[in-house]
Design a protein around this nucleic acid. Structure first.
Lengths: 233, 233
DNA sequence: AACCAGTAATTGGTTAACCAATATTAAGCA
DNA sequence: TGCTTAATATTGGTTAACCAATTACTGGTT
């Protein structure tokens, strides 16, 4: 074990984050209830001893999460169903950070399997055209010896679009790139066997064409097996 | 049909959103590639004819999505795997808005079913204690004639925690409250039959105790049936 | 006493100026 | 010629001041 590994990553706690914690504290302690107006920005920044920009940043972020709603020239009110606020912020400030890799992969497997099922059931003729285009783009990259990560991912996204479930698509867009950031060396699908992955893509597409959800799901499972077996590495 | 229904909700396109669109355009058109530094804030705000705050807001939002990374006193660089940027922003600015209700419900069904499976397999003794506490809290509300929406939701969240999959839990936290906002009158689980929902909760808990994933999933399906049959209303 | 109009204070929205850290350039030295 | 170093320009960070819309208040009227 090298000494270097004993260093922890430095966490730069930005001012906005500290303010968010304080506001969260106010909400979770019940001093601020849904519907309440929270103190005006000027008062807050004076009380906290920081510039108003920071307070505004904090409020923006909270608004982003749907915890507060700010009405121009009027005030900012607590909107949330308490739980979202608390739980969403318990994982600290960013919701999607700090997830363990295994959960990420497991979740992707779930999402992809269900998505491809729906896609097989609901795909239209236009969807098939888009899928073929995406597959061709990926094939072109592979035949040029490239990894084609973007094209690979795009194929999966097209499947999500064919599923006609906009939420599932959004969730996949949240989860999948997160995997890539941890896993950049690898391509989206499997371990360094581009041609194998290409064939698997073709198999999946075929089952979608045939509108066979069960086979499509199985093919997707097999396709993602490479990545999920990697989880213990 | 009342005339009032012909009005569309007014969409206030905030300045930051317009700027985001322009930057998105730059990225998707390839003028800005991953790794490139984008123009300094002053230059941008001058070019766009707005204050620097707006430009900063836009950059913050993009950073939020993981599309750019801003280095203090140095510059802002495009970080993304292009696709996230494009697709994530195609649903306009906010990722979670504009979803159709049916997709939302369908997705929740998927997430809850898979989550309860994992929970049944992985739950610890401590998890069971938490689940019982949550159930008791819900029971107390119901017996007082209340809806107990928060307690209801909390039971489901505890299940997600027992699944030991942090990503699934986060996704459920994203999806479920969104349903509630469209569906406030109803409680989380079913249609106005609090005692029935309570019994169903007990059944689910029992199967989790028994570590029987299949029965747990079935019970959850039955439990959520009320809501999913509502989808055509 | 209740209500309305007009004014003053307060609100978030927006802009401009200032600051410290960084990157760049140019000059000086070996 | 190549490297070091100092001066300068540029960057995002931060604060303070200004603006227009809203709200609260006061005084007068009915």
């Amino acid at each position: 074990m090298e000494v270097i590994n004993n260093f922890r990553e430095i966490v730069v706690e930005k001012p906005a984050d500290k303010i968010i914690k304080q506001i969260k504290q106010l909400i979770s302690s019940g001093q601020l209830q849904p519907g309440d107006k929270l103190p005006p920005e000027r008062q807050l920044c004076e009380k906290l001893g920081v510039g108003r920009s920071y307070v505004r940043d904090a409020i923006r972020k909270l608004e982003f999460y749907g915890i507060v709603k700010t009405l121009p020239q009027s005030g900012t009110v607590v909107a949330g169903l308490g739980i979202t606020a608390l739980e969403g912020l318990i994982t600290d400030v960013l919701m999607l950070e700090g997830h363990d890799f295994q959960s990420l992969i497991e979740t992707r497997l779930i999402l992809e399997k269900q998505t491809v099922r729906l896609a097989a059931m609901r795909r239209t003729a236009d969807d098939l055209i888009d899928l073929e285009k995406a597959l061709d783009a990926y094939r072109a990259k592979v035949e040029n010896g490239k990894q084609g990560i973007d094209e690979d991912l795009m194929f999966h996204i097209r499947i999500a679009e064919a599923s006609k479930n906009s939420v599932l698509k959004s969730l996949m867009l949240i989860v999948t790139p997160d995997i890539l950031t941890h896993f950049t060396e690898q391509n989206v699908c499997g371990g360094g066997k581009p041609y194998g992955a290409l064939e698997e893509h073709m198999t999946i597409l075929k089952h979608i064409q045939d509108q066979d959800p069960d086979k499509a799901e199985l093919a997707m499972s097999a396709h993602l097996k490479g990545i999920s077996s990697f989880k213990n590495a």
